[in-house]
């Protein structure tokens, strides 16, 4: 049953993406993006990646919708006609995509239990993390404990970026106040 749900959700994800490309009203595109990230989160939940779904909830559904709406408030809500022809970029993207797909042919099949990535530390994490960490979800255990320093570094980067954005916004507002 869960496979059927996942396949239907992926189908709706594709429909939403195509609709977002074809629409020209940016406000409508933001609404499609909001639906897209809700669908992506539902897919994550259906595939049992609960922590990724949490991140998607905070970033995708909440903040990115608000940020894109703020951008619409600045740039207007209608897409301008592109000044260049899409032929050459489309060819470059298609070619790059084909090369990348060709590059994946050497990789082990998706879900192959004998792949090198499943032989290194993954068995230890899967078998021992409920005892060692005490968190029922193995992915959360890896992120929050085994790779705790990594997660702390990520948080430092995001925090620094947030301070940078706040500094830029503050400078702009002060200039407007002086003039």
């Amino acid at each position: 049953m869960i496979e059927v749900v996942t396949v239907i959700l992926f189908g709706m994800l594709a429909v939403t993406a195509i609709a977002a490309i074809r629409l020209h009203d940016l406000f409508a595109v933001v609404m499609m993006f909001s639906i897209y990230s809700l669908l992506a989160a539902a897919v994550f939940v259906a595939m049992d990646a609960v922590d990724v779904a949490f991140t998607e909830a905070a970033v995708g559904v909440g903040i990115s919708t608000v940020l894109m709406l703020a951008t619409i408030g600045l740039v207007g809500r209608h897409e301008k006609r592109p000044a260049h022809r899409p032929g050459l970029p489309l060819a470059v993207v298609t070619l790059t995509g084909m090369v990348l797909v060709y590059g994946t042919l050497d990789m082990p099949r998706f879900g192959d239990p004998l792949a090198p990535i499943h032989q290194h530390v993954a068995p230890h994490y899967l078998q021992d993390s409920p005892v060692e960490i005490g968190i029922p979800n193995a992915v959360t255990g890896v992120l929050a404990s085994y790779r705790g320093y990594d997660t702390l570094g990520e948080l430092t980067v995001i925090f620094t970026a947030g301070i940078g954005v706040l500094a830029l916004l503050g400078i702009r507002r002060r200039k407007r106040g002086e003039s």
Partner: peptide
């Protein structure tokens, strides 16, 4: 899963408020 669903309800409310504010006033 109910915890996640609750979080989605709260975050979706923020997005809805932002959408309605933009559609009413033109920007945030």
């Amino acid at each position: 899963y109910v915890d996640i669903a609750l979080m989605y309800t709260l975050v979706g409310f923020i997005a809805t408020v932002a959408v309605l504010k933009v559609s009413e006033f033109g920007n945030l």
